[in-house]
Design a protein around this nucleic acid. Structure first.
Length: 706
RNA sequence: GGGCGCUUAGCUCAGCGGAAGAGCACUCGGUUUACACCCGAGCGGUCGCUGGUUCGAUCCCAGCAGCGCCCACCA
């Protein structure tokens, strides 16, 4: 691809000002430079004569040492103060060199003295000015950051030592007219080695990104490639629309080498493809390619490109690229540019993927960025040792809201571990009780079996919909609650009842197998190892990895069964709360009589350890559920009426508030006129329910002895 | 200097026009034959502030105040 780009004029070699890392002794791309505010100094110094009557000019800089490489002083063309000086020459202190005073529109007359020293070889702005004015470009530093070649006493000094030394030398001459310290300003640092980068003039290889970036941007603009979440597209365009040419050569010892050879005398060069041989005696360019150049080849090089392989045909373009938003510029855009170019040999070939889904960055449990200086980084391997790799993976899934960062903490991982354990225990228990996936699930299910199978199919459909939007956190949450709250807390408890009955045990074993089979497959992407172990044992299948993804069966949805279980839950919840309020131990068996129960009495009695009323039954307490079920209890101990009164009053207040709220809304004619019918209907329903609640609770309060 | 985003229970986060939610933490109870990495019952929020739009605003709009991120060549 290098050769293609080269032959198309999209790769060229040029002497440019580049980001140089003296530590790495290599060039860096713009993307590898991070700007940070640092406390430096702003020193104003006087060039030219020290005699006020003679020509002189004051310039300011944060990098005094670069004055050794100055080749001009620039002022704004319209600046009257310096109009006379423009075109003249002035002496550069310490060097004795004469440098011109030039006019350049880049200079801001409002800043400082309105005069700028120009160091074309060591500052990007100055480089541009220098090009415009045809100034000499004097390199005064070697590749390790030492001052070199100035012919002054400062040669050999480190750039930071020189900054001080030059400043003091100027001070001795009385040329320092002002100093501002600390002076907060932004300085580019190497992302990897952290030291300040040095703009440096050198001969490097560049990719001319204009046409490539344009095509990559258009692919997203015209909807061929979608970015999720869509807000992130703006950042993508920021980049594609403003990308500078990309410096791709690196002076490192590892990486793909630049496929260019030079003749022995250096006068000729040739770019060769993989199968071509250089002439005898020619030597290859010692530089290697930027790692992102190589990484950009990933979507097609891994599939056998440039051969037209079956893999390439099948998997290129792929559907979704899932990655972190921090890598959008580094990797994603470059894959787009090279992928499109590689396919057709022109910038607008086939895109490597159709959807770019971006997730956030992992942060610490307080939502802070992990960093060495903060010391809040974590080693996932340590967590994996302690809590299991499934727990760590599930934690990341639980936190993965699209485009948002995800905080992780040990407590959350522990919670995920608990969930894995719960899943393990529940499935083991079910298998111990004969849970099975053998044979067809009976079409006619009843009771809890019908309910949980209905719920399973509804959950499958919800999960599928959430996957469409890359809502991993919501999928994890949905499955967490379905598994824990519904399957474990309710269904397994209810199944115990029907498993104890030979008439229903067989069907329930099959239903149990069905729901666990589905649940494990749904959870497998998030909890791979535990689900694999459980599933293969439950089903006897080869591997859950190759098991088909569950599909929702609308015929299994059973609103009546769901309603029946909800009614059961309401009764159980009411009784549990009553018992807890009354301080009655869960283990204590109580004789209870129900009136108006629609069904599931056996299940309710088992769940709550309630006895049938005997002949001596004498109700000492009673309550009525919102659904109108009357429950009479024969408590052996005295009833704590005060506690019951407190509870009823609390409920009364809630119902009262609900009544007032709905009443006032329903009394609003504007609302009745403008609100959608469903909203009004719902308000009426709530209003009626609140009214019924109040009556019921008031009656219960009245019935309490004083 | 531009742009984007965030501000909801003690903590971390969902919800984004018609009844305030989850996990963790906290309180109380528990030798219920899967699980104490558990079970059951609770407590906890004028949804950053000020205006506006609307019959109705945590949700939409404007301003303000704090955070955070990205981009940018102010010597």
């Amino acid at each position: 691809i290098f050769k293609w780009l080269y032959d198309d004029g999209l790769i060229y070699r040029a002497e440019r000002l580049v980001n140089w890392s003296p530590d790495l002794r290599s060039v860096l791309s713009d993307a590898e430079v991070i700007h940070e505010d640092v406390e430096g100094e702003l020193v104003s110094m006087r060039y030219g004569s020290l005699d006020d009557s003679q020509p002189h000019i004051v310039v300011a800089t944060t990098r005094v040492e670069t004055m050794l490489g100055d080749t001009a002083v620039a002022v704004h063309p319209d600046d009257a103060r310096y109009a006379e000086l423009v075109g003249t020459e002035i002496e550069l202190p310490l060097t004795g060199r004469m440098i011109p005073i030039i006019a350049d529109a880049h200079v801001d007359p409002e800043f400082g003295t309105g005069a700028v020293k120009v160091t074309p070889a060591h500052d990007p702005n100055d480089f541009e000015i220098g090009k415009r004015a045809n100034l000499p470009m004097l390199t005064i530093m070697d590749e390790t950051g030492l001052i070199q070649g100035t012919g002054t006493a400062f040669d050999g000094l480190d750039r930071f030592e020189a900054r001080v030394a030059v400043r003091e030398a100027l001070r001795e001459q009385g040329r320092i007219v002002a100093e501002k310290r600390p002076y907060l300003h932004s300085v580019g640092h190497s992302e990897r080695s952290k030291e300040p980068i040095e703009p440096r003039l050198s001969l490097q290889w560049f990719v001319k990104v204009g046409p490539l970036a344009q095509a990559a941007g258009d692919a997203v603009r015209d909807g061929t490639v979608q970015i999720s979440p869509p807000e992130m597209a703006r950042r993508y365009f920021d980049w594609t629309d403003n990308m500078h040419d990309w410096c791709i050569s690196r002076q490192l010892w590892w990486g793909h080498r630049i496929p260019v050879w030079y003749s022995p005398d250096g006068s000729q060069s040739v770019c060769l493809g993989p199968d071509e041989q250089p002439p005898d005696g020619w030597v290859q360019d010692p530089d290697v390619l930027d790692t992102w150049f190589s990484s950009a080849l990933w979507p097609f090089a891994t599939l056998g490109w440039p051969e037209q392989t079956a893999d390439l045909a099948k998997f290129y373009p792929t559907t979704v690229l899932l990655t972190g938003y921090d890598i959008l510029f580094f990797w994603v855009i470059r894959m787009m540019m090279f992928g499109m170019y590689a396919m057709d040999g022109n910038p607008s070939g086939a895109e490597p993927f159709h959807t770019i889904a971006l997730h956030g960055m992992v942060r610490d449990k307080f939502g802070k960025k992990m960093s060495k200086s903060r010391g809040n980084g974590v080693d996932p391997l340590v967590w994996m040792d302690e809590y299991g790799s499934d727990a760590v993976r599930f934690t990341f899934a639980r936190g993965a809201n699209p485009g948002a960062d995800l905080p992780v903490g040990e407590e959350i991982v522990a919670g995920s571990r608990n969930f894995c354990t719960k899943l393990w225990n529940a499935t083991r228990f079910a298998m111990l009780n004969g849970a099975s996936t053998d044979g067809d699930l009976p079409t006619e299910l009843v009771g809890a079996d019908a309910w949980i199978i209905s719920r399973l199919n509804s959950v499958i459909a919800q999960v599928d919909a959430l996957y469409e939007d890359f809502e991993f956190a919501k999928i994890a949450d949905l499955l967490y609650h379905f598994a824990w709250d519904e399957v474990c807390d309710w269904y397994l408890e209810l199944a115990k009842v029907s498993l104890a009955d030979p008439d229903t045990a067989g069907t329930t074993r099959r239903a149990l197998g069905e729901v666990l089979d589905g649940l494990l497959r749904l959870l497998h992407p998030f909890i791979p190892f535990v689900t694999e172990a459980l599933w293969t044992e439950l089903t006897g299948g080869e591997s859950i990895v190759i098991a088909p993804w569950p599909t929702p069966d609308p015929a299994r949805l059973d609103p009546a069964a769901e309603q029946a279980i909800e009614a059961l839950q309401a009764v159980v919840l009411d009784l549990r709360r009553f018992r807890s309020d009354q301080g009655v131990k869960p283990s204590q068996r109580i004789p209870v009589r129900f009136t108006g129960l629609a069904g599931n009495e056996r299940e309710i009695r088992t769940l709550l350890r309630l006895d049938e009323p005997t002949e001596q039954f004498a109700a000492t307490a009673s309550l009525t559920t919102a659904a109108g079920v009357r429950i009479e209890l024969d408590l052996s101990t005295a009833v704590d009426f005060a506690a019951e009164r407190v509870r009823l009053n609390r409920e009364y207040a809630v119902a009262q508030k609900e009544l007032e709220q709905t009443q006032s809304k329903l009394g609003n004619e504007n609302l009745l006129a403008k609100a959608p019918e469903q909203v009004v209907a719902k308000l009426r329903e709530r209003n009626a329910a609140a009214r019924a609640d109040i009556d019921r609770i008031a009656a219960a309060l009245d019935a309490l002895p004083d």
